[in-house]
Structures are given as C-alpha cells and as structure tokens.
Write a protein that binds this DNA or RNA. Structure first.
Lengths: 110, 110
DNA sequence: GATTTATATATAATATTCCTATATATAGGG
DNA sequence: CCCTATATATAGGAATATTATATATAAATC
C-alpha cells in the first residue's frame, strides 16, 4: 500500500476513472480502485463519501438513491457531462507530474 | 504549473532529489526544482522552509549557517546518511503510484 | 545617493485532503 | 441468533501546502 502522504490527490482521479466506465455506488468504487491497482491504492469509505459530496457540489457527479436487487438502499453516482470533460485535463496534469518527477527525481515508470 | 491538489506530497521527494547532488540552501532548492521540471513543479519558500525543519527533525537533512562569498548569511542543508537511505524506498513508492494510476486511470507517461 | 530588484529566511493564518474512530442499518450464512 | 459482508454517514484530528506578512542585505538601476 502506498503511504497517505504520497497518494494525496489521487482520490479524485480514481473516482472519476472508475465512474467513466459506468455508474457506481461508493462501496463498490472503493473495491474497484483497490482491485484495479492490485492493492496499491486503497481508500477508506470515510475518505470517499466526503469526496463524492464535494464532487457533487461542483457538478462533476450526480448521486441518486436506488434499491438493489437484494433490497439494499444505496446511492448510485454517475459522471455528469462536466465531470467527463474534467477527466482529460486532470489526466494531463498527472502526466505532467510524472514527467516532472522523472526528470527531477529519476522516478521510473515500471 | 501543476495544481496544488495534485502535486501534494512531491515536495519531500523534490528536496531529497536536489540535495542528492550536493548541499544547497532553501532559496536555491526552489530555483532548481522549478528549473529542472521546466516550471511544472514550483514551491514557495514558505512551503520549503517548514518542510526543511521537519526533515531536519527527522534526521534526513542537516542545516548549517554559512556566509556566502557575497557576505550573505544563509542556511546550507545537506543530506544525512539516513536521508540518503530514504531516497530509494520513496522513489519506489512513487514508481508504484505511477503504475497504479496507469492501470486505473490510464495516465500515460510522456 | 536613492530607489528598486534579487537574494535570503521566518512565521502566522488558512485551505485541502485524507485518516481513525464511531454510529447506524440490513442481507445472508452458519 | 450471531457473525460477516454490505452500505452510508459524520466528528475529530493530522499532514501538507498556500497566501500573507515581516525582516534584512547585496546588487543593479536611475
């Protein structure tokens, strides 16, 4: 697991990325982020929920209550057009950071 | 310039990296970080000084007052053996983060 | 000689992001 | 009936970087 100090700022990109595939609820987002990064990136639900509220306020995602087939109440989030539009520049910034750290700190990209 | 929210956590690696080459004072560190990243990564001195104090407390760097040839008083920092030892695992963690974001968020490494 | 710019360090107040801890609630398996 | 997995919510705190402010001097410009 990557230390909190280093992974800071990644949660937003992580949420946008898993939502790009399709609508999801918070609990499932956490599962997918952990799974798709082989456990390198792991967020607590207590981190994700406030982040989702902030993103909803900004208009990047929209949440809607739904009842699953098992009868469980949960809040399903989907990307708004605005949120979708944000993904490209955010990816570009991360890409720029990678390049900067490669040059400055010789961080390799396995 | 990369947004503060994204570059969070990079300052420590940046300082360790520029100090790996040789001893430096704060003002010059800021200049080199900006220069070596082509302006992508830029830290205010008000960020760097408290960071240097924290790193000195942890024993990663050691500062010493010196007087430059121009007669200017400044605090010169050098990596301690402990600080040097930290660089490898920190680089590895950043490398792991890059890989994770590549998989999860399709962030490319230009 | 006076003013401005570049060099150099320091700290207070604030913002953001993530954490641990805690609370609540229900479905399903044993 | 209890435990585990699923699911959301929020309070309190830690860490990191920001803006704003203060101080001081060397070098360049006017």
């Amino acid at each position: 697991m990557i230390a909190p100090g280093i992974k800071r700022g990644t949660a937003e990109l992580a949420v946008l990325s898993v939502l790009e595939v399709g609508p999801l609820h918070g609990y499932e987002m956490a599962r997918r982020i952990e799974e798709q990064t082989r456990g390198s990136l792991r967020f607590t639900l207590a981190s994700l929920y406030p982040l989702l509220y902030r993103m909803e306020k900004r208009g990047w995602v929209r949440g809607a209550w739904e009842t699953s087939s098992s009868g469980r109440r949960r809040r399903c989030y989907r990307l708004t057009p605005q949120g979708k539009k944000k993904l490209t520049p955010i990816r570009a910034e991360w890409s720029e950071l990678f390049l900067a750290l490669k040059r400055l700190a010789k961080v390799t990209h396995a």
